[in-house]
Design a protein around this nucleic acid. Structure first.
Length: 273
DNA sequence: CTAAGGACCTGTCGGC
DNA sequence: TGCCGACAGGTCCTTA
């Protein structure tokens, strides 16, 4: 589920309801996520106000006066606000209760997600190596060019590397490469500066479009089932092995790169060199 | 440095 | 209907 667009949609949906509210309760039902949820620092949040809700890559950052709570949704996580009387289901691992009587409920069947604490103003170690935000001015064709110069690894692996740019998951890596007409297995350092330019533009465009599509379900974050529908949007190649390309009608191919499914049009995204 | 593979989990789907 | 393997939107870590 959660690629950057969904995380951003989640942030926008939650923020108006909980920023400024005070934590009243904290319930950890299943601490075994990717890393164990540390109960001790979290319990000290009771009585504290949420100052801001921000996003860095796919991490949601809940800023409190004493530090920052980080939540990563992994492969299958989701957050929603529910009435404080709503009984939990099987995979509801964490509830944070607020002064407005809503519960922020973390659901994550596969438990690849994470709930972490960073004390005071310290940047959590997991955030330190992260590269630029794809939608910010810190990410340009120049920074991408520099990051991949002389690299032999496949360009798809490079753009999914958080140190080069954050938040580009498997779906959007495939889609952005299609838009930029670059084969996923191309050596990153061999791309022309025109190709790099097209790719950085495509990454921004693809993510922006997806966030806009996700924005249509913001109302569902309170009380509703909170399932954003942005992936209804037309995916040009992802999951379309064997289907005709929307541009040239060639058959979409699937290969595996870094153990992840990679889809591309062998004609539109022909390899060069 | 890079590449490759394993690890963490559950749910769903297709094939037999 | 039931069982089994393959696979899923993430990403860190170890090993070569």
């Amino acid at each position: 589920m959660p690629e950057l667009p969904e995380v951003e949609t989640t942030r926008r949906g939650l923020a108006p309801h909980i920023v400024g509210q005070t934590v009243t309760t904290l319930t950890i039902r299943q601490p075994k996520l990717r890393w164990p949820i540390a109960a001790q620092p979290l319990q000290t949040l009771i009585g504290k106000p949420l100052r801001e809700l921000q996003r860095r890559g796919k991490y949601l950052l809940f800023s409190f006066p004493s530090g920052t709570l980080l939540i990563h949704l992994g492969m299958s996580g989701s957050l929603k606000l529910v009435p404080c009387t709503q009984p939990p289901h099987r995979h509801d691992h964490l509830d944070i209760g607020w002064s407005n009587h809503l519960l922020l409920r973390l659901t994550d069947p596969r438990r690849f997600g994470a709930v972490l604490w960073s004390e005071g103003d310290t940047l959590h170690p997991l955030l330190q190596p992260l590269g630029p935000e794809p939608l910010s001015d810190a990410f340009t064709h120049h920074t991408l060019q520099q990051a991949v110069a002389n690299k032999r690894r496949a360009i798809k692996l490079a753009i999914m590397d958080n140190r080069i740019v954050v938040g580009v998951g498997n779906i959007y890596a495939n889609e952005a490469l299609f838009q930029a007409r670059i084969a996923p297995q191309q050596a990153a350092g061999n791309l022309s500066s025109a190709q790099i330019s097209a790719l950085s533009t495509a990454i921004k465009a693809t993510l922006t479009r997806a966030i806009e599509a996700g924005g249509t379900t913001l109302k569902d974050f309170v009380g509703g089932d909170g399932k954003p529908g942005y992936f209804q949007q037309q995916l040009m190649v992802y999951g379309r092995e064997g289907e005709p390309c929307g541009h040239c009608a060639s058959t979409i191919k699937k290969i595996v790169l870094g153990q992840r499914a990679s889809y591309f049009c062998p004609k539109c995204q022909a390899k060069s060199l």
